[in-house]
């Protein structure tokens, strides 16, 4: 599993490199474009994910203690929180489309035209990075659903609960990625005073 996570880190690593480059080359445009991201919604989502990590940790703990009911409940809670995250994300995406901030197909930059190129690239990276992250969330929710099914069947005991643990590890990893994404994408511009 650790080997797998290393691969994942490298995956996002390439994107972070592109991001670093963009930020360095088009600093002002990035700041301007980042202003269009809703830091409050992003913040709410950060909170949601953090809580979901907590419930996930509780689920793993419960599984190790052999408490089947608690394991299942915590897992369901985790799944719901994950779904909330995706819902908020979808709402944000649709907003971007409405505002004409979707790179390639629907992009109309009405502020300082000098920033148009950099801003489009920034939003492009925003979609790729959060999109890839969202994809990981979907996979995560699928995994949790599978684990719930197995837990209900009584597959896990205090001796055997590796699948729960591994799913937990994956879930935390996806959270951590978001913890990096959030400040890098949303919090560049100080929120309006």
């Amino acid at each position: 599993m650790w080997a797998f996570l290393v691969t994942e880190v490298m995956f996002f690593g390439g994107l972070f490199l592109a991001y670093t480059f963009l930020r360095w080359k088009h600093h002002d445009a990035v700041v301007a474009a980042s202003g269009h991201l809703d830091w409050i919604l992003g913040g709410v989502n950060t909170g949601v994910l953090l809580v979901s990590s907590l419930t996930m940790a509780m689920a793993v703990h419960a599984a190790q203690e052999g408490k089947r009911k608690a394991t299942v409940n915590f897992l369901i809670l985790t799944m719901i929180l994950g779904a909330v995250f995706l819902g908020v994300k979808a709402f944000e995406y649709s907003h971007k489309w409405h505002d004409g901030l979707f790179p390639g197909f629907n992009f109309h930059w009405i502020e300082n035209p000098a920033y148009a190129g950099g801003a489009e690239m920034f939003l492009f990276l925003y979609f790729v990075m959060t999109g890839l992250h969202g994809l990981h969330m979907v996979v995560g929710i699928g995994l949790v659903a599978w684990i719930i099914k197995r837990a209900n069947r009584g597959d896990f005991t205090p001796e055997y609960n590796i699948p729960v643990e591994i799913t937990g590890l994956y879930w935390h990893f996806v959270d951590i990625v978001w913890i990096f994404l959030y400040p890098l994408l949303y919090l560049i511009q100080p929120p309006h005073h």
Partner: peptide, 27 residues
């Protein structure tokens, strides 16, 4: 391998969406 994978994604997306991460004309 993940790095080349993501690079290819950026390349493909750039062709499809026309944003210019690798294109000097677009910055």
């Amino acid at each position: 391998t993940p790095v080349i994978a993501i690079t290819v994604v950026l390349l493909a997306a750039e062709r499809v969406f026309g944003v210019g991460i690798f294109n000097p004309n677009l910055g």
